[in-house]
């Protein structure tokens, strides 16, 4: 897989004398290794594994940060799915966001990468220009700009009015708010595009040349060469984008005016989690939400991985 390839180790070029693979050899640098790993190990235990266990415990409690946690069993989870309309709303908003923003971003980034790839060598400027929003887009500043462009009298509304499409203020109309957040995500198509471009460059020219000899149309070449050859990269981008999309926060916070938008229309999952934990101090409930998020992300990732054998094509393994 191109994006994850390891540069060839030169050990294969000049074989080192074989050494016994005994325990002594294997743990040659045991002590030094753990010296180098100390900061990472401390972080992994103290800031990752430990807190994960604690948050799993907290998810079964009622905890307001100031008094001792009180064990409540599955109450938090039951409340989430049966009593809490705002929670269900946040799930709805987030699913819509993930299901629309991820495919849109993938399609746009693939299209742009294919256009850039048609002319080898001359696309450095364009590549950089298209990549820029990926760096800026996650900031509060960019989201503020976005909000101004999609509000009453903003550029987007005026342009749509100009071509006869009357839309309300996207920011203030509950049925439009999340769409401006989605478009902000699509605007940051640069990172997957750069990865697609690297993948496209790895496809051997001969495949296209052979197809041309056989009289294949551009559409056929796309379906039968580009897509299969690119499928490992599509897979990689899909996993990354999906994991990220579930955790969207800043754009929804800013565009929704800090409260999740009109009628909670931009109340994404992490925003509601923030409100539960740090505004209402329901830390047990927020922990339960975090664990549901983790499980959902794990399931989605697992499904994408499992489905990979059906549609991801590794040329060298067939």
């Amino acid at each position: 897989m191109t994006v994850l390839k390891t540069p060839p180790s030169s050990a294969t070029a000049a074989p080192a004398p074989r050494k016994p693979r005994g325990a002594g050899r294997r743990r040659e640098h045991q002590r030094e290794a753990y010296v180098f790993l100390t900061p990472w190990l401390l972080g992994a235990i103290g800031l990752t594994v430990g807190p994960m266990i604690v948050s799993l415990y907290l998810s079964f409690t009622e905890y307001d940060l100031f008094t001792e946690p009180r064990w409540v069993g599955f109450e938090n989870f039951v409340r989430m799915f049966t009593e809490d309309d705002r929670y269900l709303q946040s799930v709805k908003v987030t699913l819509l966001y993930v299901l629309v923003a991820v495919p849109m971003k993938m399609i746009v980034s693939l299209l742009v990468a294919m256009v850039l790839n048609t002319r080898a060598g001359s696309n450095g400027f364009y590549r950089s220009a298209f990549y820029a929003p990926s760096l800026l887009g996650a900031s509060v500043a960019a989201a503020l700009v976005w909000r101004a462009m999609f509000t009453e009298g903003g550029t987007v509304n005026e342009l749509l009015d100009g071509i006869g499409l009357n839309t309300p203020s996207w920011v203030d109309d509950p049925s439009y708010t999340i769409w401006s957040v989605i478009l902000l995500a699509v605007w940051q198509f640069g990172a997957p595009m750069v990865i697609f471009l690297a993948g496209l460059k790895q496809i051997p020219r001969e495949l296209y040349e052979a197809a041309e000899v056989d009289g294949a149309s551009p559409v056929r070449k796309f379906w039968h060469i580009t897509l299969p050859m690119l499928s490992p990269v599509i897979f990689f981008n899909l996993v990354l984008e999906a994991i990220h999309a579930f955790q969207v926060f800043t754009p929804a916070f800013v565009i929704g005016g800090g409260r999740g938008g009109p009628a909670d229309s931009a109340l994404v999952y992490t925003l509601y989690l923030y409100q539960a934990g740090f505004e209402d101090f329901e830390m047990g409930y927020a922990s339960a939400m975090a664990w549901v998020l983790l499980v959902v992300i794990a399931i989605v990732t697992a499904v994408i991985f499992r489905s990979a054998r059906l549609w991801v094509f590794y040329g060298d393994k067939s």
Partner: peptide, 22 residues
């Protein structure tokens, strides 16, 4: 394990970390 943490949403460690720092 290190690779697995690439996929971990940081929200799942957020609250205990906050408690520690608090």
């Amino acid at each position: 394990f290190m690779i697995a943490t690439l996929m971990l949403p940081h929200h799942v460690t957020l609250i205990p970390q906050y408690v520690i720092f608090q």
